[in-house]
């Protein structure tokens, strides 16, 4: 508390600079970053590169054309250009992935923060909730939720978000439990800091590193989940150019027209690789102890 503001500020800045430098020197992390920036740019520019209109998007004279100079990814049974659809599918997958994870991070982190900080019966209930939600492996809970709510992209987003909440609850709670007993929090408490100040000024900022690492990796998982639900017919509905749904459509005739499934799959794979590479790099930079994991 007695450290002059300017000194504390410069300390923080050099720590940040140090991390940024380590990140920039991380080869696979930079590859991941490039992939993600590429996908984001292409998704943002999609309406400029290839305008898309679901209603007019068909050309029955060019049905099931294999990839060629005009249709570089080929066309489907309605003569729709796969390239255009993959391009616009990125807008869906990235948006849903980021929103689902974002909602889960905010809710899960707050719940985990309070559970860890207050302890007692609040914590008991929180742990119970975490255990219940984590009893459903992978996308099983999401499937159960969407199967009941009815298949749609919004419901898929809600379901994926719910399955990610316990991950952040557990993570934040465990970090808070260890930080709560640390000397700097104890001394802030002894100095009479208010509870809100303790939580949001001292405990939360110091739990951020593992949350940020998890967040990057979660977006990849969420993109895979959106696609899986789409493939099962539980996510985006036709004629939405969602990647998983496109693979579902292509699956019916993949012997005759494999390009229908191949290109959306590569798009999913690359975007998820991007987030996983970035997540690994962020972990190395923020939490060097975990480097080997």
């Amino acid at each position: 508390m007695t450290v002059p503001a300017a000194a504390a500020d410069s300390g923080r800045r050099s720590a940040f600079r140090d991390r940024a430098r380590r990140f920039l020197r991380h080869p696979t992390g930079m590859i991941g970053m490039v992939i993600i920036v590429f996908f984001i740019t292409v998704s943002l520019l999609a309406p400029v590169i290839r305008p898309y209109d679901a209603a007019r998007d068909r050309n029955l004279r060019a049905r099931l054309t294999p990839p060629n100079a005009e249709y570089i990814f080929g066309t489907d049974e309605l003569g729709r250009d796969i390239f255009t659809r993959v391009l616009h599918g990125g807008r869906i997958s990235l948006r849903v992935g980021v929103i689902a994870v974002g909602v889960a991070v905010v809710i899960g982190t707050l719940l985990g923060l309070f559970a860890g900080f207050f302890g007692g019966w609040i914590d008991t209930i929180a742990v119970w909730l975490i255990d219940i939600l984590l009893a459903f492996p992978g996308i099983l809970l999401a499937i159960a939720i969407v199967a009941t709510l009815g298949p749609s992209l919004t419901n898929a987003l809600i379901a994926i978000s719910i399955t990610q909440i316990p991950v952040y609850m557990r993570l934040t709670r465990s970090v808070v439990l260890s930080i709560k007993e640390s000397e700097y929090v104890q001394s802030a408490r002894a100095l009479g800091a208010a509870r809100n100040r303790l939580i949001f000024r001292h405990v939360l900022p110091n739990s951020l590193s593992p949350i940020i690492v998890q967040l990057t990796l979660s977006i990849g998982v969420a993109i895979l989940d959106v696609a899986a639900l789409g493939f099962l017919g539980l996510g985006a509905q036709p004629p939405n150019p969602e990647w998983g749904l496109m693979i579902r459509d292509g699956f019916a005739q993949f012997v005759r027209a494999p390009w229908l499934s191949i290109f959306p799959g590569i798009a999913i794979f690359l975007s998820v690789v991007g987030f996983n590479l970035l997540g690994d790099a962020v972990r190395d930079v923020l939490d060097p102890r975990l480097r080997n994991l």
């Binding site: 899986a228 493939f231 012997v255 499934s261 191949i262 959306p264 794979f269 690789v273 996983n276 690994d280």
Partner: peptide, 21 residues
Amino acid sequence: MTIALSGVSFPVFWLAIILIY
């Protein structure tokens, strides 16, 4: 390690279709 990282990035259903193909 790079191959392992790609391994967790595959959509399972897509990998299945490609293997069949």
